[in-house]
Design a protein around this nucleic acid. Sequence first.
DNA 1: GCTTGCGCTGAACGTCTGTTCAGATACGTT
DNA 2: AACGTATCTGAACAGACGTTCAGCGCAAGC
Lengths: 195, 195
Amino acid sequence: MARTSGSRASETGPRIRAAALRLFARQGYAAVSMRQIAAEVGLQVGALYNHTPDKQSLLCDLMETHMTDLLAACAAQDWPQDPARALEGFVRFHIRFHAARPDAVFMAYMELRNLAPENFERIEALRNAYENRLEVILSQGVACGQFGLSDVRIGTRAVIAMLTGLTTWFRPEGGKTLDEIEEVYVTLVAQAVRV
Amino acid sequence: MARTSGSRASETGPRIRAAALRLFARQGYAAVSMRQIAAEVGLQVGALYNHTPDKQSLLCDLMETHMTDLLAACAAQDWPQDPARALEGFVRFHIRFHAARPDAVFMAYMELRNLAPENFERIEALRNAYENRLEVILSQGVACGQFGLSDVRIGTRAVIAMLTGLTTWFRPEGGKTLDEIEEVYVTLVAQAVRV
DNA sequence: GCTTGCGCTGAACGTCTGTTCAGATACGTT
DNA sequence: AACGTATCTGAACAGACGTTCAGCGCAAGC
């Protein structure tokens, strides 16, 4: 046997990445084998290497794609000048974006340590660029006296952690809708930083 | 060759667990081999099995010990009746306890998915017992009108996430001391839940 | 309709995995 | 001083790992 009927690189590549993403998120990079990914897509192991140079690149590609998507979507928003409204917008944006792709978020969060050093640096830079968005909003709010935060850097990290933590327990079938949760978080964050 | 001079189970056991903890925290359970742990302690692989039935038990032991320590320390505190003061105490306790054992916290947070199902259930129950402490404080505060939280369950998780996230970026050699960070967090949390 | 080459299979590679065990040795006990 | 047990070494096990590659077949381009 050989080439399967209907096989095309333009479809197989994305299917491999989708399978890898799901498996990496659920079991962790180190615990997932290339054979497992291949089986999920319905291929033999060797075929994966027509679409990725190696396992590490697969992880790195997924991480970079996720972070790039995040930054692009973030940039596409129109951000209010008013810090309080910008902060509210950030909370809503973050929650919506992350709730829409739980696997990617979970993987991006957990698998940083499995990146080769040079890949890690690149991904971390993207992450910092995103967190910097929030930091700018908070520092503007502090500068104009709207926010009473005593340390912007710590505040930024605290808010990010609070928001990102949502993805570790939120399940669509749970009692609360995402809209309800969003409102709670908007209030929590707004109050936390108010003067 | 055989038994090494000065070898004793009462010392080797803890040394193995300490090495495993450090390695699991840094590289992840699945990425750490038994040979690696043995090398860290200065043993051959086989010797590990005098002290643990298998790799999974090693992980589970470490997780359970951590959670048990956490609950014991938490119970040993004397908690103020006043919800606002109890909340402040909880924040301080959580930060101090977790900052003192970063490896254990990181492992307990990241490796839940690598527990066998029956182990997972037990550990998760311990975790829930801890989070319940905070939930009780928050709901008491809401009940007596001190806190203006619109949803206690979501608020609990948000606060826990915010506090636990601290361990992913806090390094003792960083610019801020733990005391300074503690004060910022106390304020952030107090404001977030106030009416 | 023939040819080219992409994308697949199936098998193989060397290495590493967790775990077991016979044999050797140092320690605690007597 | 001699014994027995606790603890270690060193080697072995079967299976899984990431990666490579010769060979085959299908689809697209002429």
